[in-house]
Amino acid sequence: MLEAILVMAFGAVVLGAALGYAAVRFRVEGDPLVEKIDAILPQTQCGQCGFPGCKPYAQAIAKGEAEINQCPPGGEEGIHKLADLLGREFKPLSAEHGIEKPKSVAFIDEQTCIGCTLCIQACPVDAISGAAKQMHTIIADECTGCELCLPPCPVDCISMVPIAEDLPHWKWKHPVIMLKEVP
């Protein structure tokens, strides 16, 4: 009788230790679902979804507090991807959060800029360089096109320039083939 209890107790201790070790050793950092959602979001950090950045929106989606159709830069394609990931129904982009626009980057008119640094403080990805009373300029490669720098500018010297199709960005189009009419 005592033997049986001891064997069972020993087994419980060993398994408990193993589980405890595994919990520490194979601990998953962060929330994997949030990471997956965040990977789909375009990282524009524009806040059009109503959250202060892509990560908070991802967290809200994961908790079920936000709909998947609140991200205009991600567009229809992004919503489809989120719907696939979460097993939810596809919904068209919600109009109150904005519309899908062609990808653009901000451009500062250097003649008009007064060097107030307000846009620098607004930029979510630190893509504007400049200093007080010095001309500012956009680092185009790092600009996400979030438009957050537009409202604070007191002299309206920032405009959004759609990214023109140039040679390095050119893509082969989906071929249009004329199908022969089969009688």
Binding site: Q43, G53, K55, T144
Partner: peptide, 29 residues
């Protein structure tokens, strides 16, 4: 069709790199 598919894949990879960079810079900010 293959050229179309290749350039789409390249464009997506480029976009992915750009969004990773934006995430990193936003986190650092």
């Amino acid at each position: 069709f293959y050229r179309y598919a290749k350039s789409e894949i390249w464009a997506r990879e480029k976009e992915k790199r750009a969004s990773d960079l934006a995430r990193e810079r936003h986190d650092f900010r």
